[in-house]
């Protein structure tokens, strides 16, 4: 099954602070969308809303299944409560893999035991899939050390393994390269690409301009909770090293690294990519 991440006019305010302000974007199945922006711009909040962890004040954020080429209805109430998708078209609920605000696992369990526990909830993946995901990211699944004994980089790798082990329909990764060495970054990039090739709609937030440039099909820039810019197509952000944070060398906002889509012209009904996921 393929699925699309749909965010439409999403506004979220928490304790009188507007953390997301009328954000509209879509991530089609099989594409990788980068999220750029300075700290506090709303990247993580946006991912939380998509995952159903926070409830929109206005608008919609959800993952909806694409059944027979048609986009399912985004059930607004359910989506905001973590019941993403399954909009009455008989499709199963889309699977979401995520790594938000750093990895978080049970400190006393080994890496494999943590992933096996997560896998046991949906029973889409088993311990073998968890072990395979760990190996793919460069961790030893036989490592019996508890999670608390892992280094920062190992914890991050385990977080990525947990996000991808079920081959999710939507993959939300917040700063996946944090604490990773260069080999870890390469592995992570390869795995993310692989997930997209298998049909996942991928959203990656990162301060690493090079990583986003190499990986993302398009990049959305957030600032103070709203969409500041949108760059479509592969972008050479190496030529604009600060563009991932939304600022050019001159201190202004990056608006046109490749093809800028003005905020008012953001397409609301992007066509779905043909997905081959079951």
């Amino acid at each position: 099954m393929s699925a699309t991440i749909v965010v439409e006019h999403l506004t979220k305010s928490i304790r009188a602070t507007i953390v997301l302000d009328d954000v509209t974007l879509r991530v089609r199945a099989g594409t990788i969308v980068g999220l750029a922006g300075p700290n506090g711009s709303g990247k993580t909040m946006l991912m939380r809303a998509i995952a159903g962890l926070i409830r929109p004040t206005r608008g919609v954020a959800c993952v909806i299944p694409d059944v027979n080429g048609a986009l399912g209805q985004c059930a607004m109430r359910d989506a905001s409560h973590g019941r993403n998708g399954a909009g009455g078209n008989g499709a199963r609920r889309p699977r979401i893999g995520m790594l938000l605000e750093g990895p978080a696992f049970l400190a006393g369990y080994s890496g494999l035991r943590n992933l096996a526990l997560l896998a046991s909830i949906r029973r889409v993946a088993d311990e073998g899939d968890a072990a395979a995901a760990m190996e793919a990211i460069g961790l030893d699944p036989k490592d019996a050390r508890p999670y608390r004994a892992y280094s920062l980089g190992m914890k991050q790798r385990l977080g990525i393994a947990g996000a991808i082990m079920e081959h999710p329909d939507a993959l939300l990764l917040d700063e996946p390269t944090n604490a990773l060495d260069s080999s870890g970054v390469r592995r992570a990039a390869a795995l993310i690409r692989d997930q997209a090739r298998q049909g996942a709609a991928v959203m990656v937030a990162s301060h690493d301009a090079g990583f986003l440039a190499e990986l993302a099909d398009e990049v959305w820039t957030l600032a103070e909770g709203h969409v500041e810019g949108h760059v479509d197509g592969h972008v050479d952000l190496h030529a604009h090293p600060d563009s991932a944070t939304g600022e050019s060398e001159a201190g202004g906002k990056t608006r046109s690294a490749c093809r800028e889509v003005p905020r008012d012209n953001v397409p609301n009904k992007a066509p779905l990519a043909a997905g081959g996921r079951g």
């Binding site: 995952a51 159903g52 962890l53 409560h81 973590g82 019941r83 993403n84 609920r93 979401i96 995520m98 938000l100 978080a104 696992f105 049970l106 943590n114 997560l118 909830i121 949906r122 947990g162």
Partner: peptide
């Protein structure tokens, strides 16, 4: 809930579990 539990909530698909 601010750590592993958030992953569990998302994996569950609803919050009741």
């Amino acid at each position: 809930l601010s750590g592993f539990g958030a992953q569990v909530v998302v994996a569950c698909g609803n919050r009741w579990k």
